[in-house]
Design a protein around this nucleic acid. Sequence first.
DNA 1: GTAGCCCGACAACCTCCGGTTGTCGGGACA
DNA 2: TGTCCCGACAACCGGAGGTTGTCGGGCTAC
Lengths: 309, 309
Amino acid sequence: MRTFVAITDAGTFHEASDSLSISQQAVSKRVAALEKSLGVRLFTRTARGARLTVDGQAFLPHARALLRAEARAVASVRPGSRALRVDVISRRLAPGGLLSDFHRAHPDAELDAVTLRDADAAIAAVQAGTVDAAFRAVTVPAWQLPDGVAAVRVHDEPLQLLTGPAHEFADAGTIAMERLAGHRIWMPGIVAGTEWAAYYEDFAAAFGFTIEVTGPDFGTEPLLDTIARSAVLATFVGEQTRLLWPPEDDLRRVDVRDPTPVYPHSLIWRRDNPHPALALLRDHFASPRPGHLAPDAPGLTWAPDWAAR
Amino acid sequence: MRTFVAITDAGTFHEASDSLSISQQAVSKRVAALEKSLGVRLFTRTARGARLTVDGQAFLPHARALLRAEARAVASVRPGSRALRVDVISRRLAPGGLLSDFHRAHPDAELDAVTLRDADAAIAAVQAGTVDAAFRAVTVPAWQLPDGVAAVRVHDEPLQLLTGPAHEFADAGTIAMERLAGHRIWMPGIVAGTEWAAYYEDFAAAFGFTIEVTGPDFGTEPLLDTIARSAVLATFVGEQTRLLWPPEDDLRRVDVRDPTPVYPHSLIWRRDNPHPALALLRDHFASPRPGHLAPDAPGLTWAPDWAAR
DNA sequence: GTAGCCCGACAACCTCCGGTTGTCGGGACA
DNA sequence: TGTCCCGACAACCGGAGGTTGTCGGGCTAC
């Protein structure tokens, strides 16, 4: 690909071979191999150089796109001057409802999303500089964070109950929290010892339902399929979560009120991290965002006692 | 890259080696080479398989994007079932003002833009199936087109004069066509014998200015730079043309009235071409588009006599 | 505690991919 | 029509990248 693009830029095989620091014959061989593998001619060879065929013209922008993709891939792991790397909790809960929001506001800021084991790992990674920021529920007060690490609760994500059409709550639209008592909530994929598990333990204890984590996690598709077929199982998802499958009419979203459970996200970062996009991220989440609950909303919501303010 | 992604999908080196039909040792070597070239570890090796490191997680979406780019590149030249391939006239005149419009209306329709030598070559390519459609000024009446090839005049692009700040017309904003008489218009890059050359010959003859095509074409940047510095040279560009360089304040766009010159684009296609996106393209340009001159606008515009209706 | 198992790494070997140099035919141009 | 330059072809060669065989090291079962 690089050779192909170099030739279109240079105009002749010979000149391209210079810029690539290989021989003209090697360039010729590379092109011949590429043309053979594609099954089309990319250049018409003339006495005054190489000109693109129609296929070559159509191919060129895709070849350039490929080289750009390669450069971005390499840059994503280059120490120093890489894109902002942000830890977000498992996609099930909030697959970028947070970040896609930011992305719309700052389309040029490049982000790489990663997911660490739990908040402790995320905080350690932020301190180590392995990641630049994390969105996590923080279970400890601010003064217990490592030196130089800051955390601010920036986003309370309302949780909805997700049920199949045969479930008791399927057509309720909204239910009161007290009706959850005694019900079975299935949350496979939760890892014991994480802040995410702690959240659901406290949540279940506070309102008298049971959390089941049985079964290995085969991914979200079988999980949601099971939910869709079950009359008694339900699960929680973030309000912003967009499910890819199954079609939404196989599943029902049920709002919960009195109070509405919210998952408390804190933005965690290291104060001396100079990454320019990090400042954008902090500013974005420091200011109130229309359509989102402010974390200090009055008592209509529920979050664990330990959730940092 | 493919190996890297295969491992993340499979979970273990061994399983990935199966899906790639190579040995586990080869997979191990490939990963080691990739990690070495990137300078980071992508996997943590455990007794239960390979897990992504943080770098690996950040790298993964870029690796997938690269593979998608590769697939698109290959698909762009695959005979049958490739993206719609459209011939458009040299970018100088109308760099996708036509196609970006269509792209906004149909973001999913994949297009590859190519540029053939002239309208005759485009018509031949359409007939041969090398390209699926062409936007060209057609110099012959419809009944002289090859069998099965159709052409409909769909878009008249108004031309603006482009001058440097020292030019007589620089600050006029709008001029009457008659004022062009005796002026020098520089249009390097025009190839003799093309319908594009014929257009400008007729244009110049009709209103008494001169066209200069001297000088080899070094690309648009030096051309525009020359225009920007000259007090007597000017050139024509399509109204929709967005110039990348120099900054617009080094150049002046001057509207021409009484009449306004328009470049007549016909959409050319082969009637039995079943490409689904071609039908979209025809429908899009068959219907009136707000903000664009209809090709049958009254006598306020000028186009050559031969321009197909 | 320990035997077995499965995972990935390492070593040795070999093939052939992809580079090199040398040469050639053919179109453009003076 | 000679000259020049472009790209292709041939012959050769080193090493990148595949193979097989083997090993150490954690889980896991008993």
